[in-house]
Amino acid sequence: MLIKFAGYSLLYIALYICIYIPFVGANIYLLISSYVLFGLTGILLAFNCAHDCVHNTFSKNKRVNKIVFYCVFNSQGVNSRLWHKRHIASHHIFPNVDGCDADIDDNPFMRLSPHHKLRKYQQYQHIYAVFLYLVYTLHWIFVKDFIYLGKKNLANLKDQTHSLAFIAELIILKLLYLTFLIVLPALFTTATFQQIMIAFIAMHFIISLFFVLTLIISHLCLETEFPEVNENGELPYNYYEHQLAVSLDYHPESKLANFIFGGFNSHTAHHLFPNMQHTLYTHITPLIREKAIKHKLPYHEKSIPRAIRSHFGYLKKLGAG
Rank of each mutant, 00 (worst) to 15 (best):
A6K: 12
A14W: 12
I17Q: 11
C18T: 12
Y20W: 09
I21V: 15
I21E: 10
V24Y: 06
I32Q: 00
Y35S: 00
Y35M: 00
Y35D: 00
G39H: 03
L40A: 01
I43L: 14
L44E: 02
H55Y: 01
T57H: 03
N61C: 08
V68C: 12
V72Y: 05
N74K: 07
V78P: 08
R81I: 08
L82E: 07
S90M: 10
H92S: 01
F94L: 09
V97F: 07
C100I: 00
C100E: 13
D103W: 02
D103R: 02
S113G: 04
H115W: 15
K117S: 12
L118R: 04
Q122V: 03
I127H: 10
F131W: 14
W140R: 05
I141L: 06
F146P: 09
I147G: 02
Y148W: 15
N156H: 08
L157T: 02
Q160M: 13
H162W: 15
I172Q: 09
L176Y: 11
F180W: 14
T189P: 10
I196M: 03
I198T: 10
F210P: 03
T214M: 08
L220Y: 07
E223D: 14
E223L: 13
E225I: 04
E228S: 12
N232L: 06
N232Q: 14
G233F: 09
Y237G: 03
N238C: 04
Y239A: 06
Q243F: 08
N258L: 02
I260Q: 03
N265W: 10
H270Y: 09
L272N: 09
L272F: 12
N275Q: 13
Y281V: 04
T282G: 00
I284D: 01
P286Y: 08
R289Q: 11
E290C: 07
H295M: 04
Y299M: 06
R306D: 14
S310H: 07
H311W: 07
H311S: 02
G319Q: 07
A320P: 01
